[in-house]
Design a protein around this nucleic acid. Sequence first.
DNA 1: CTGTTAGCGCTTTCAT
DNA 2: ATGAAAGCGCTAACAG
Lengths: 326, 326
Amino acid sequence: MPVTIYDVAREAKVSMATVSRVINGTAVVKDDTKKRVLDAISRLGYRPNAVARGLASKRTRTIGVIVPDVSAAFVAEMVRGIEDIANMYDYNIILVNSDAQVEREVSLVGTMWEKQVDGIIYMTNVLSSQEIDAFEEAQIPVVLCATEDPERRIPSVNIDNYRAGRDAVHFLLEKSCKRIGFVTTDEGESVVADRRLQGARNRMRDMDLHVIRTGKGRYEVALSKVREYIESQELDAIVAASDELGLAAIHAIQDMGKRVPEDVKVIAFDNTRLATMVRPEMTVIAQPMYDFGAVSMRLLTKLLQDEPVENYSVTLLHNIVERQST
Amino acid sequence: MPVTIYDVAREAKVSMATVSRVINGTAVVKDDTKKRVLDAISRLGYRPNAVARGLASKRTRTIGVIVPDVSAAFVAEMVRGIEDIANMYDYNIILVNSDAQVEREVSLVGTMWEKQVDGIIYMTNVLSSQEIDAFEEAQIPVVLCATEDPERRIPSVNIDNYRAGRDAVHFLLEKSCKRIGFVTTDEGESVVADRRLQGARNRMRDMDLHVIRTGKGRYEVALSKVREYIESQELDAIVAASDELGLAAIHAIQDMGKRVPEDVKVIAFDNTRLATMVRPEMTVIAQPMYDFGAVSMRLLTKLLQDEPVENYSVTLLHNIVERQST
DNA sequence: CTGTTAGCGCTTTCAT
DNA sequence: ATGAAAGCGCTAACAG
């Protein structure tokens, strides 16, 4: 039989209310009795039951984290950021994978509701109205993480993807590249990727931007698509929408006997550890992956304890890390 | 005010007990009344409160997952396996990072206890008796995942690391390599890595195995250590304890102007996506990372519902994937 | 500063 | 097949 707050109360010869007070620090307790309670707690090896607490207080100190797939490097790094800050504020996280499927995402918001999480950190490729409806119905505070909400209805943490796209192209143009290819997912697969492409197009002005589509953006697909494309077009530079796509581009180029950066320059997005694990090491538009998670979680804690929030839509800074691929 | 089971009962003109029965299928309910209840549920948009359920039933359908660091590729893949199977059996996971620090690990088992998780999946580098004591005290079923328990006291899922070490060396020896280096972490950093080294040593018989230590096994450290070592010793093959270390080895070799596999062959452990994202692509001893998680979780579900278990210590198979680095 | 007393929303006997 | 009622272990008024 596990030890309950009632056992502690008896052992310390006080009421359960007093025990609750010393555990939670919700009211002043005389030093002397506090000590008695603490002694009793350690003597009995008492652990407060978080489930009972949750039921009584209506707060579980648990956050739901909904992501497309933890096994993606970018996401895992972000989750680590979330968990670190959650831990710091004494929250735990329930992690689920949605594979970015709307139906599943809506259902997951439902299970988070049932589990009575205090808040949700949400990441997806394309935010649909069904998901927003689900948030409303569940009445749970949500922070979007590295996810674009065109109408900015929901608190979020992001970078300026449009500018990031511009910056990548600008960087190559300054190196006097003329024929630039943009390797990315299919249109509609990711709002973030689509925004970057828009930014890139804008910076090209009236020059052509050669868009290379790679489905969901996997290495193997990109490898063959880039190869095909380069054979037909004489590109001298490539922007890749992720490190993985960047790696594929570099290898495709090298497999054809061309050199990076001499023949073709490559710049990619993200800056996961992959970027420094290729030869040549990759120049990137670095995304603050860990910070996405950490800042989202911090924002959520503010929302949860009604701290003043200056900005419900935080924009983190991206930056260019120049390495050998350009 | 959220809808409760009581509201549903009233709406359907039955008792809450009956509502509970149709939700949980714990007893036969007449088709007619079941329909009334289901209607009421959807009409009111009722969601059972998992916290209240947990308190009443003493089972939370939540599993604690304690890992060193989700942001490591290997771990993230494993967590994905855990979550997929958990989801299949209607469990959720609470994920925490321990950074493999004993003190923190013990404390995390404590918070899992408080959260009343039904079971724990545990991964660490070195399992200490303090952690085992913590499991005992919390009285929670635990499954070790990709973690060596020398005394096999706790249910676990692993590969045969000793044999895997032997196999790696055997493979190189068959290719008539003579001077083999083993790149790994410092001794005592990881029981798994140490076991592999033992296996490797065994297969070498009376020949020298050149052990290259790299602290905690990070790419950057390995890069310089391997370089130093290769300059002084004429190695013709390397076994690396992880993909990351393997990549470092390949790059160190190439940076010195030597060729892989012509001058030095490289075989690594794990087979994360990294292995096919290098040139040359890496030959590896593949570990079933996803399966580690999936099988662990499946084993745990058996433990939790008292299904018969044939084997409390599951050994998964590793296998060699030959690519261009050998 | 401390104790008493309702619940929180559900599951689970025990009756009927 | 269904209902009544007693908790599960804790928090949060409300008294005093």
